[in-house]
């Protein structure tokens, strides 16, 4: 027990150092920061403006009004940003496998999965976080959400769960590189598919797709079910139930992904011969 505690303290200590280092690397290239500061918010603010235009032309999407869509979109972008900060490495796992970069992690006395994700914390993810929060707040105001303790707890639990679901999916997809030995860049496509399935109401898809996105690839829990529950649309249960399910799904996905990663790592043979 005492050992476990000491180990945990050690990991936290390393994490603090790593975050400090990440901030320092970012500050080193100011021109790059400027680029990402423009690029990331632009993407979401424009994406959101376009939803506004379309929804105003048509009135609603599948019964969801513009304000409700802003709420859904904001929730989705915030969890996207959090997953970008902690789990974006999953997108590039293929390169690490091909280039033999895991050698470095294997020689250190810390968990490989922990090192892989946390020594590469992506501070730039904050540039996604800001537009996400803005759109979410806008959605809350538009829908007249009453902010009370339950709501805040719901949002927090949902965001943790949603981030874990996204991160788990990145790890799962990235870990396929251990088996295929190819450096497919999943990032761009994963993001586009995630955007399409988490930023619009899931109920607009036919039932077969809804089933897949609820039970097999549980992206429905990232934003759709929690948002529906908090806003009281689509007849989804209100209260903490849905948020807790999201958290549960998130933990399950990340555990499966971790196991898959560790299994893949055994197949890892480094680069060269």
């Amino acid at each position: 027990m005492k050992n476990l505690f000491r180990e945990l303290i050690h990991y936290l200590d390393v994490t603090a150092h790593v975050i400090k280092m990440a901030v320092m690397t970012v500050i080193e290239y100011p021109s790059n920061i400027a680029g990402w500061l423009i690029s990331n918010p632009l993407q979401f603010i424009m994406g959101f403006a376009i939803i506004k235009f379309v929804v105003e032309s048509f009135g609603q999407i599948n019964g969801w009004t513009y304000g409700q869509l802003a709420f859904l979109y904001g929730l989705s972008v915030i969890s996207h940003a959090l997953s970008m900060i902690f789990f974006v490495q999953g997108w590039f796992m293929g390169y690490y496998v091909i280039e033999g970069e895991f050698d470095r992690y294997l020689t250190r006395p810390l968990g490989v999965l922990y090192q892989f994700f946390f020594t590469n914390i992506n501070i730039f993810g904050v540039t996604d976080l800001i537009p996400g929060i803005l759109v979410f707040l806008y959605g809350c105001v538009k829908c007249g959400v009453s902010v009370n303790l339950t709501f805040l707890v719901q949002v927090m639990i949902t965001l943790i769960g949603a981030t874990l679901i996204r991160g788990g999916i990145y790890i799962l997809l990235g870990s396929t590189s251990f088996y295929t030995r190819s450096a497919v860049d999943f990032g761009q496509y994963t993001q586009e598919i995630m955007d399409k399935t988490t930023m619009y109401p899931l109920s607009m898809y036919p039932e077969s797709i809804q089933f897949i996105l609820t039970y097999l690839i549980p992206v429905g829990w990232i934003s759709f079910y929690p948002a529906a529950s908090m806003l009281g649309t689509e007849g989804v249960r209100s209260g903490l139930t849905v948020s807790l399910v999201t958290l549960g799904v998130g933990i399950a996905v990340i555990l499966i992904a971790g196991a898959f990663f560790n299994r893949g790592l055994k197949q890892y043979e480094s680069a060269g011969n």
Binding site: Y29, S31, N32, G35, W36, I38, S39, N40, L42, Q43
Partner: peptide
């Protein structure tokens, strides 16, 4: 380095 700019252009 124009990675960020390429993204801006793409969006």
């Amino acid at each position: 380095n124009i990675d960020a700019l390429i993204q801006v252009k793409k969006h």
